[in-house]
Design a protein around this nucleic acid. Sequence first.
DNA 1: TTGAAAGCGCTACCAC
DNA 2: GTGGTAGCGCTTTCAA
Lengths: 364, 364
Amino acid sequence: MDRSSSDADATRSRRATITDVAQLAGVSRSAVSRVFNAQGGISAATEERIRDAARKLHWTPSATAIALRSARSRTVGLVLNRPGVAKDGDPELPSGMFTGLEKVLARHDFGLLLHIATSAEHEEQTYRRLAEARRVDGVVLLESRVGDTRFELVRRLGLPAVLLGTPWVEDPISYIGHGPRGAGMREVAEHLLELGHRSIAAVSGPEDYVESSHRDRILREVLATGGAGLVAHHPGPYTPVTAAERTRAILEQHPEITAIVYATDEMAIAGMATLREHGLRIPEDVSVVGYNGTDIGAWYSPALTTVRRDVSQRGRAAARTLLGLMGVTVEASDEQVVDPELVIRASTAPPRGAATATATATAG
Amino acid sequence: MDRSSSDADATRSRRATITDVAQLAGVSRSAVSRVFNAQGGISAATEERIRDAARKLHWTPSATAIALRSARSRTVGLVLNRPGVAKDGDPELPSGMFTGLEKVLARHDFGLLLHIATSAEHEEQTYRRLAEARRVDGVVLLESRVGDTRFELVRRLGLPAVLLGTPWVEDPISYIGHGPRGAGMREVAEHLLELGHRSIAAVSGPEDYVESSHRDRILREVLATGGAGLVAHHPGPYTPVTAAERTRAILEQHPEITAIVYATDEMAIAGMATLREHGLRIPEDVSVVGYNGTDIGAWYSPALTTVRRDVSQRGRAAARTLLGLMGVTVEASDEQVVDPELVIRASTAPPRGAATATATATAG
DNA sequence: TTGAAAGCGCTACCAC
DNA sequence: GTGGTAGCGCTTTCAA
């Protein structure tokens, strides 16, 4: 092969760099840089020539070079802890949240790096690696846990972080809390009280999840205030299978309950199947409430009463906060924080033979 | 503030670089580099000193610097097209797939960069940006469409890519196909035929999705072979709401149908609600089949017959292929490709008054 | 077995 | 307004 003729090819195939653009435009590299960083101090004519050259060469500044130069990767990390992956369970990704996060990050030209850890150690190691290799400028923390060591960890690593949830103890970390009103559980409790329920069970999330235990606490408190009791409380993983098991346990130990509150819609659906197996009708014999409805419960029969949250909005808020922490000037948002909303459908009704408290309670 | 004393602080707080490690170990930077790249040619004693120094300084090579130096970012991009985001629908992320992808990528120290586009143009622009800014070394393409322009695009951009699906036309792109057997639809069709169904409807995915149309084609062919007909075919988006609407349309125009095949479990659940509204019982009056069961259908009443696929495995396969394309030596996998599996549950049964073909058909 | 030095693509400081 | 140049943290010849 003729070596000299391949030169042209090489030149053509190699990705353009700022030097190529400068050359084509007949200016220095600094000039090109200035144009693309909107620093001014370049005449309109020159700028035009430079932009032309860049366009012709399909040139865009190399993210990598900029990252090295500025010591910022313009990337945010997200580590999901999904032990289930090991046995190939289906670790549902909180998609609404991703959407919200990504939307805001992309607008500021930040990328979202996704990692999935399969154990606590693996998780910690992942954060450590991301930080030490300087692959990310900050991280989003999900699923706040009791005894969570991640806040301390990211602090030690010097990694800006935002928690989507509420820390288990007072902590200087930035967070998007689940709100003071029990993330909608107050409304759930009041709804059940109004219907006349007095013996209620909860099939909730893991005990060491801050939000889950917060939801339980509010539920218990509000029920107590209304003269009712949370007579059975079964925390556990967010899986339908175990929800079915826990439902069975409740029916054996507390046949008197007239309503069950589940931690997710999927769990509620599994629970309803179990209730049916035991010959119980919904809502005539037992009322059922889900959580975080992705509308799937609406199609169930009976349609599932649930709590709906705008997780996408929470994602957006987290992204804005994190960008701020990383020193990016982010537009002030006039976005209202939307409270969780109780969606009353057909799976809740007054218990059998209850004095219908509804009439009096609803007045007002 | 005493300027000279702050020097020590600065030294301490600044992240360590390879130079710091070299200095502490009393060697040159090249020596450090060689140790961490397992290039050999370094005496055991020196290596020990270097590793000690690195440990003491918490030093890990900067991913950014390596990226610049090697012109590879060790990152893979994934662009999801979810127009629904605009109206804040819930664009479900194929979580199993992510898990599979990430698992293999992480093992090779590759990151997964997630982007969500809200339109075809936005999508194309995203790929372009990722490529031109050299943020990724390759991309994973999802949801193969008829008339898909992405293969051509990534080729022009010089971006290694793997498609999770089958290209709409013969194309040199690497792909993890949906398999020759109709992604499980052959089994669905045979199952319905055996039960004795002859008038069947399909509420399927978008017409321009390759996999969806492939599934429909196989369904139609196998049914025809068995002397049955796909009398109604309603493609559309993967949303429960429209599935309900399409179910209504089918009932009006083709009251004779005895089975409906849905594109997803969620759509099937919405469809079943609609069937019930019309006073039809499942499976006595109409049999229903879902797809891609995330087990949620198992808890429905009646439990939903569906097709189960190991999407996580497909994700792993895609990651391996892509890594190969990017020049990473990836361990040969002995992982078997698992065929989609028909999961027969309670939502399918012989049609009313059908000669039970089951006995004869199943024999063998 | 080890070190010196060039250079990856870019920005920012300092000249002119 | 514009150009020259040092240097971000690393790898990789080439020499010793």
